[in-house]
Write a protein that binds this DNA or RNA. Sequence first.
DNA 1: ACGAAAATCACCCATTCGTATGACGACTTG
DNA 2: CAAGTCGTCATACGAATGGGTGATTTTCGT
Lengths: 144, 144
Amino acid sequence: MLLYGSLGGVLIALLKYIEYQHFVRAYPAEIYGGALALIFAALGLWFGLRSAKAKEVVVLKEVRVRHDEPFVVDVAKLEELAITPRELEILGLIAEGLSNREIGERLFVSENTVKTHSSRLFQKLGASRRTQAVQRGKELELIP
Amino acid sequence: MLLYGSLGGVLIALLKYIEYQHFVRAYPAEIYGGALALIFAALGLWFGLRSAKAKEVVVLKEVRVRHDEPFVVDVAKLEELAITPRELEILGLIAEGLSNREIGERLFVSENTVKTHSSRLFQKLGASRRTQAVQRGKELELIP
DNA sequence: ACGAAAATCACCCATTCGTATGACGACTTG
DNA sequence: CAAGTCGTCATACGAATGGGTGATTTTCGT
């Protein structure tokens, strides 16, 4: 800012000197004043835009985009494969790495029940292993 | 822009007229010129800053798309857990739902070998089931 | 070239899993 | 009401899995 100010002052003095010596008599004062006004208006505008550009850079950016969608089960595929709610529930627990026994404990049913559910589930998913069932479930968007 | 231009022109004319009529004799030309320069410099600066503010708003733009990353294994965690390349490979195949036998066939090794690898893998991952290992592997970004 | 790490394989044993089969009760629907 | 679906549970058996130990061979870094 200080630099700009002093530079402007020098420029003014210079211009004034030149003008006074050579043109003050050649052209009417209106031309002189107009030119001066134009020059300084341009100068001011230039400086203004310059500082404007600087400001432009400083502007902060704060935008968040979604990263994970909420996930919804593909109900169409569920019905298509005739997978019951209970079976889907068990698929989810299988995907969490729980054993049949643990699933039974969590759902307050016997391990045998879990086995029947998972067995039917595997049939419907075309899986023969639980890891396979998990993979299929993710592919079919039945589990996140 | 046009509006500003014409306004500036009118202003110039007005100023010139007033000056010519009253001050041309009262003060030396330097003062007159200096004042004019100052005024127009300020005017230009003001306009510059004004347009600067407008530009500042435009800059408010941000792209932070992050939906699907290509996925790279977390080498740091791999070393931290001392997981060998072979073990990681087997983890991937487990995640695909393959049985130990199938993994052995695909890698041209015996099922027993697969079992030892997976056994050590489970130890390192703190898993007791393969489904659990898969889950841990995904959490630790060892597999996609 | 030596030694450590990795990979390979085998055997054993207990547990878990997958599958089949049958059964029973609750609920829905025609 | 009869049929169908769903959830529940049991038993049984073979396959798969997990865990442990021991051993040999490759590979690789210093």
